[in-house]
Computed example of a mutant assay.
Amino acid sequence: MLNAALRASTSPSWSDRANAGRQLAAHADVPEVAEVLLRLLQDGHDTAVTQETAEALLRRRDLRGLRLVLVAFAGADVDTVDHLGDAILNVCLQSDEDQEYFEGLATVLASAAEPDEAARTEAAHLLREWNPRLA
């Protein structure tokens, strides 16, 4: 299944790429898969691929998924940023409990211990957006 999803990630069909993003999100801890996921998060041909992949990663409810989405934010164009933001809204902000949980993850990513500067910066921005008193 993993090899089939990796092949589908380069398909000309947006629905195949979106499906690949959903499937590959479960394997985000594999470095080669993480690279493919970042490409799908910034899909230049269809923002549905971006949003589907981001939502699948966020549904993992872990640092790796949120980190990948935030790193994609750092290098994304305006349209892609909108869809990444929609994915965060759709998954992270559905309830107070969800927001509190993802704030906890973002706090970890915003800390000096986070080695990825893009993730650290975007996590800090997200926390300020969710909680303006932190600004």
Rank of each mutant, 00 (worst) to 15 (best):
L93G: 06
R17Q: 13
E100I: 04
F102S: 01
L37N: 06
A5W: 10
Q99Y: 03
S15R: 15
T121G: 00
S111I: 10
P132Q: 06
A18F: 05
A28F: 03
N90L: 14
L126S: 09
T107R: 10
D16A: 11
A56P: 08
L105D: 04
E32F: 07
A8L: 13
A112M: 13
G85R: 11
L63Y: 03
A110N: 02
V108E: 15
V91M: 09
L57T: 01
L40F: 09
V30I: 10
V49N: 03
R22S: 10
V69T: 13
A74F: 07
R60S: 14
E52P: 01
F102L: 02
L89M: 12
A34G: 01
L2G: 08
A34F: 00
V108Y: 11
L37W: 05
A18Y: 02
L63M: 06
V49L: 02
A34Q: 05
R22E: 14
L2T: 04
S13L: 12
A20C: 08
N3R: 15
N131E: 08
S15L: 12
A5F: 14
L84C: 11
W130L: 01
G44Y: 02
R22C: 11
D98T: 03
S9R: 01
Q51A: 14
R64F: 05
L2Y: 02
R59N: 14
G65T: 04
A5Q: 08
H83G: 05
D96K: 09
N3T: 15
D82C: 11
C92M: 15
H125L: 04
E55D: 08
A135K: 11
D116K: 01
V69W: 01
E32V: 14
A4G: 13
D79M: 09
P31K: 01
S95K: 05
N19K: 14
D116F: 00
L38E: 13
V71T: 12
A26I: 02
E129C: 07
A110G: 06
G21W: 00
L89N: 14
A25W: 02
E97N: 10
G75H: 05
V108W: 10
L6F: 06
E129A: 15
N19V: 01
E55K: 14
L134R: 15
V108G: 11
L84T: 01
G65V: 09
L2A: 01
R22M: 12
E129P: 07
T10L: 07
A113C: 08
S15K: 13
W14D: 10
E100D: 11
L68V: 03
E100V: 07
A124M: 11
G104E: 09
L66I: 08
R59S: 12
P132Y: 03
V49P: 00
L70N: 05
L93Q: 14
D98R: 08
A106Q: 00
Q99V: 02
L70S: 09
R17M: 10
R17T: 08
S95R: 04
A26Q: 08
P12D: 07
D46S: 11
L58E: 11
S9L: 02
D62Y: 10
T121L: 01
L127V: 08
A28I: 04
R120P: 08
R60Y: 08
A113I: 02
S95Q: 07
L40R: 00
D77S: 12
L127Y: 06
T121I: 03
Q23T: 12
E35A: 13
E114H: 04
Q42M: 13
N19A: 14
T50Q: 04
L6P: 05
R59D: 06
V81F: 04
R120L: 05
H83F: 15
